[in-house]
Structures are given as C-alpha cells and as structure tokens.
Design a binder for these strands. Sequence first.
DNA 1: TCTGGGGTCCTAGGACCC
DNA 2: TCTGGGGTCCTAGGACCC
Length: 512
Amino acid sequence: MRAAPTILHLDMDAFFAAAEQASKPSLRGKPVVVGGLGPRGVVATASYEARRFGVHSAMPMGQARRLAPNAAYLVPRFAFYRAISGQVMELLGRLSPLVEPLSLDEAFVDLEAGGLAEDSAGARAVGERLRAEILATTGLTGSVGLAGSKMLAKIASEEAKPDGLVLYEPGTERALLAPRSVRIIPGVGPATGDHLRRAGITTVADLVEAGEDELVRILGRSHGASLFRMALGHDDRPVVAERDAKSVSVEDTFDIDLHDRLRIRLEVERLAERCVARLRGSGHSGRTIVLKVRRYDFSTLTRSETLRGPTDDPLVVREAAERLLELVDTTGGVRLLGVGVSGLADYTQEDLFAQAEAEAGAEAGAGAEAGAEAEAGVGVGAGAGAGAGVGAGTDARAGAGRGTVGGAAAGPAGAGEAVEVVAAPGTAAEAGGRRWAPGHDVRHVVLGAGWVQGSGLGRVTVRFEEPGSTVPGRVRTFAVDDPELEPSDPLPLVPSGVTGAEGAAPVTPSGG
DNA sequence: TCTGGGGTCCTAGGACCC
DNA sequence: TCTGGGGTCCTAGGACCC
C-alpha cells in the first residue's frame, strides 16, 4: 500500500486470439477461438467476438463449436506469442527495473522503483503512453490498471478491459471493494466462493463483517487471514522481478484412454525425457520426481519420490518415474500422464549422487547444450512441429481413423509446445497432414505467404495474406505433399521502421 | 465430443529427531 | 519403560491462476 497509484498491472486483451487476428487480416472482427483442436481440447483464448457467443477460456472445444460454429478454430502458436510477449516485456522494462511477469500476457510494474511517476497524474500518463507504445510496437491492445497495491491494480486492469486504463486512488480501496462479489479477490475461486456462500458471505463487505477469526475458522489459518486483509484493501506484497522456479513438469492428455500397460510405461518414459530436457534447459536439477496419473473417470493421483540429492540425469528420472508407475493401478484406462521434478537446485550445484549412479554417463556442459536445443526446438515449433493434437481434429476422423498405431488418434491431445510431441520427421503421420496445423504459417513458391485454414483428406487449404494487408486474401487448396508449399515462420505484425518504439526486435520466434 | 498444460501455494498426517 | 512437545522432512491432495 502506498500513497500514490504507482503499481501498474498490464493485461493484454484476448492475447492469443488478438495475435492471430493481427497476423491474419481475414479474421479481424470475426470470432476466433485458440485452443486444443483434438477431441479433448479446451479453449485457451476466445476473441471478444467469440465471447459474445458465450465462448470462454477453459471451455471444452466441443461446447465452443456448438456455441460458435462459424468461428475460426486455431491451434496455439506459442513461439509466436512468446516473441510478441518479449517485445511487450521489453517496453515494460523501460519503465522500471521492477517488472514481474505473471504469464506471457500479464505483468506487474513498480513505477515508483522506476522513478517515472510520483503521483496519480504521472502514473496515468505513463500508463497511457505504455498502451500507445504497445499498440505501435505489436499492433495489439493491452489494458492497464494502476493502484497502490498489486491486488487493486489487477482488479483495475480487469475493469479496464478491453483496451482501456483504470486508476484507483489510494484510500478508496475499501469503499470500492465493499459491494463486489468475493470472487473479485484474486485467490477466491469456485470452491472458496461456494464455501463462503454457504456461510452466508457473498460480498467483500460480508467478509469484513465476518471478521478475521470467522474467516480463519471457515478457510484455515493462512487463507482466512490473508483474505481478511485483502477485503480491507490491505495488500503490501512487493513487485518481485526475479522469482526462482520451484518445479518443472510435462503432461499429456491422450485423445483416447490408454489401457495397455506397456504403452503407458512407454509414455511415462517419453515424458520423463521431455521433463529432463526442460529441466536442463532451465539450468536446474531437482530432487523430487513426481508422477501424475489422471484416470478414465478424471480422478487424479500423484506419486512422488525424493532422491538423496538433486539430479538432471535422464536415466535417474526415468527410472524413478517407472518405479512410481508401479505403485499405480491403471485398470480402467488412463487419460493423462505427467512427469515433474521439484526441489530444484541450480544446475551448478549438481550432485555427486546422480553422477555416481549414472556411472560417468553424464558429461560436463550437457546442461548448456540441452538449453540450446530446447530453444531451437521452440522455434521449429511454429513450422514443422505443427502436428500435435491437430490431426485428430480433422484428419483422425476423415482419414487416419482412431486407434491407428502411433497415429493421430492415440497421440497427445495437448496443444502445447507442439514440437515436443510430433512424430519423427518424415514419418507417414507427418506426410499425412499433421504438419498443416490450422493457423500455422506457410509459404508457397509462387503465391507467397499464407496460413493454413484447414486440412484433411490429403488436401490443405491455404489463405494467402499477410499481417499488413487490409483486405482478406485469396484461398487455394493443395495436395498435402505439394512440393511448392512449405511451413514458414510468422511474419512481423508491424513492419519494422513504422513502429513508434525504436529498437524493438522484429517478431520472430527465438531461434526461428 | 466433458473437462489442457504449466505452474504456485497451502494443508494435513506420519516419520523421525531432540 | 504408559508418555510430552516441537521442528523438519516427506507424501498426497486440493485450490487457484493464466
């Protein structure tokens, strides 16, 4: 809590969907839904046009399609979003040394630490200038909240959406919060909301009236006490620039439940490998291995094992994960598997235990190499890695069919970092169309830049247009193996030289 | 077509130690 | 040698966030 509203919260508007609309002129003003396109996909982001149909984040894709059958459905392109996010974070970094990113599209900035704003007028000016710079640099809009605390700044940016700025004067917090639902307070989700409602507490004013002791009785020591403080508008959490990672994990939901114990074991091994690659890429090792299993009925369990010392050895992690799998009954089927590592240590504190265990298997410097590979992989993801979970949306039903061994149907449904789950290059699966994910960029030797509108039955439909154009481009259909067509990297949303903010990097995926 | 993936923090019980 | 209390670590699960 401070005397001037110098904590800024930035939240990009419908970020993934807006980025797709900016890069694809034909989608501007139209409902766009970004998310997993497999049979078990969910919505990551819906454009404001799609939200008018009732589509929202975390909704199952099937439901979204029923509500908005004519929307454009696209698979996420994280490398692309990450590149845009980097531009935005760079702009934030010019405001203050204290920038705390919460995700690709959201961050707190401590303007006081930056010395740019001392009062409300100054803070507002900085916020408005930031919004203009973001638009000029990325072509996208973001909403800004300004207040004397993190909580209020976040609530303010939510209030400002879309494309706005809201500033709450310090001192007005309590009055402002009092009539609102308890759900407005970050950390109060569906479960806590229900819990409180059963106790007759629905508004923030009710929270205050209930008193700290009562809240502690209902919600427990920590949650109750902090909720009471929040209800009073008290929040002195600082903006923290660097936060150490606490865990690394990967998981896959399968299009069809896995029953075969050998297949399950194989998937666990693959997940362990991916997890370690990420662990090393981040420069860490870890002590505790966690296996996650979601069963056919959506019940979820975890089993964990703590080693004597931290490791980043793939073999050690894999074997631990396999041991943990032995503890789990998988009869009935498994819909999700995950492997994680927690109890992280800096890679430089690498253990002797795992190295001895691996019998000189690990070589010094491997961490750095793994890091480079991981980065390169991300870049590739925008193009060749397109396939994961997408084929299932169009191809699995049309062509490949469910249950095909190693094919689309039984593959991971996740629309995450696609590159990591794609079949080996040159396999039948890839040639069969999995590389043509809806929304991904392509280039045709004659017709130039475009993006995949859809694929199936051996064909891929492409719309030829670029971010800068103002009218929708032409649509053409090709054979999936047309040699004149190939995946390509995203084009910049704003041509360099036209940007208001000098020195911004062009929008290309890192390493791509 | 019923439910993603990557995280964080908290609670609670049991083991173990002093 | 009928019996206490506190601290820390480990494990499992759950709520929440984007």
